[in-house]
């Protein structure tokens, strides 16, 4: 047993940070830009909301520098719902993270959807009491983020597109690389760590347990109930849905449907039922049509 507790209680431990993500498992986390959307999300059975000023599809369309949201807007959403509230800080912008922590947000997303503030370093997440989720496109990136203190990982996908192919690619890559490590002998793990550009101790831990030491969600381009269920069948612990809900024809219906499909991800009859009569899905952009410098998933190092 851990011996670090005193009789007055200890906050900000790795266990409470990672444990918080455990409580979100099996759930859908929805991007919301105002109180009305936050309530729709909560009523639909979302497990948490991500408070931000513009959903990724709008950030993509409008361009410019995307930053942390206005504290007033985050406060309003915290007041409006009883489920956990997350907010995004720019990659490497530790002061935005300090501000978000001071607002009482439950989880910070150090997100490639916002314009990076540091093209070399990510935030030192151990320095915070609030837990962080970070994006990853492969196992090495996931382990580098965990080494910096991330308590939850999400695959990146290509946010704001409605094209799920990158999310699929990222979760398959991460899961595949974990399986590959599990099959290696101990002396092969040194080179594996070098190739993954990840800390050797974490590589050994993954090889031994056959899973990441933190919860793994998936994100980026999920727009339909079937998309969400596919991510769950591929082994995600839950899903983030960004533009997919509130950029669709009938957000209330779609929010409910994606939650139901995530719950019953292994039951095609239920997924079929959830997929009926949803109206227009978000318009979508094929990832292949986006020039490489504008792909968000490439951000992070």
């Amino acid at each position: 047993m851990a011996t670090d507790a005193t009789n007055t209680g200890v906050t900000g431990t790795t266990r409470v940070k990672r444990g918080m993500a455990d409580m979100l498992k099996g759930g859908v986390i929805m991007d919301v830009v105002n109180v009305e959307q936050a309530k729709i999300a909560e009523d639909s059975g979302a497990i948490a909301v991500m408070a931000l000023e513009r959903v990724p599809a709008d950030i993509r369309a409008q361009g410019g520098v995307a930053r942390m949201s206005d504290p007033d807007m985050i406060d309003e959403i915290i007041q409006a719902v009883s489920i956990p509230v997350m907010a995004k800080a720019r990659i490497g912008h530790f002061v935005e993270a300090q501000v978000i922590q001071s607002l009482g947000v439950d989880y910070i997303d150090e997100s490639e959807v916002l314009t990076p503030a540091d093209y070399i370093n990510h935030i030192d997440k151990w320095a915070f009491t609030v837990p962080f989720v970070c994006g990853a496109t492969n196992l090495g990136e996931a382990l580098r983020r965990i080494n910096e203190g991330a308590a939850m990982i999400r695959s990146k996908g290509e946010a704001g597109t409605g094209d799920v192919s990158n999310a699929t690619g990222h979760i398959r890559t991460i899961k595949g690389e974990i399986r590959r490590l599990s099959s290696m002998t101990k002396d092969e793990l040194y080179v594996a760590a070098k190739e993954l550009q990840a800390p050797y101790d974490l590589v050994c831990e993954v090889a031994e347990t056959g899973k990441l030491p933190v919860v793994l969600f998936t994100a980026g381009g999920i727009a339909t109930p079937a998309d969400a269920a596919m991510m769950m069948q591929l082994g995600a612990d839950g899903v983030f849905v960004g533009s997919g809900i509130f950029k669709s024809g009938d957000p209330v219906k779609r929010a409910n449907a994606i939650v139901q499909a995530t719950l019953h991800f292994d039951n095609p009859d239920e997924i079929a039922k959830a997929s009926r009569g949803l109206g227009e899905a978000m318009v979508g952009i094929n990832v292949a049509d986006i020039p490489v410098p504008h792909r968000l998933a490439e951000r992070g190092w």
Partner: peptide, 28 residues
Amino acid sequence: FGRQVDSFEIDLHISAIGKPDYHAVFIR
């Protein structure tokens, strides 16, 4: 107990399960 930043761990005496104290994790 508050929001996630207030989540904590503490040792608890629980006579129904005996000694030693139980290390309890509280999350929101």
